[in-house]
Amino acid sequence: MSTTSGSAHLTDEQFAECVTVAPSAESQLHLDECESCRRELAAFDASLSAFGTTAMAWSEATPKVDLRAAAKLRARRTMERPLGWALATAALLLIAVPVWKNHHGPSAGSESAAVSTPDDSADQIAQDNRLLQSVYAELTPQDVSPFKEYGMTDRATSRTKGRMGSRMQ
C-alpha cells in the first residue's frame, strides 16, 4: 500500500494490524481520509462479531452432555476393561492348554501306555511269559560241557561250589 498517495488502500499487514492491535499513525491517517477502508474495517469487525455470536448461539443450542453420567460410564469402562482382559486371557488359556497338550503330549502318553500293565489281560500275560521262556531257552547254552562229555571233574567249578557251600552253611 501507499497510504500517503491517497489512491491506494490499507495493505494486508496494515489491515491486520488495525484489526489485532491498533492502527499505526500512518494507517490512522489513511483511515481518516479513506471511507472505503473505514467501511471495510467496520464490515470486517461486524462480520466477525456476527460469526462469534452465531457460533455461540449454535453452541448454546447444542444439548449439553451429562458429565456425571459420562464420568460414571467411563469409570465403569475402566473397571470393566481389566476384567474383560482377564476373562479373555482365561478363555485363551482354556483353548491353548489342551491344544498344547495334544501337540506335545503323545510321546509321553505312549510311554506311559507301554509301561502301564493294569489293562493287560491274563491271556496277554501268559503269551508274554511264553515268549520270555522261549527267549530264555534260546539264550541257555545247549552244548554239553566237555568235562561231562569225557567223565572228568571240573575242579575249578567243584572248588568254587565247595567254597560257596561252606559259606552258605
Binding site: M1, H9, L10, T11, D12, F15, A16, V19, T20, S36, C37, E40, A43, F44, S47, L48
Partner: peptide
C-alpha cells in the same frame, strides 16, 4: 485475517 478479508471482498 488476509484470507477472511479476501473472502469478504476487501478494497484491495
Amino acid at each position: 485475517i488476509k484470507t477472511i478479508r479476501a473472502t469478504l471482498g476487501g478494497t484491495k
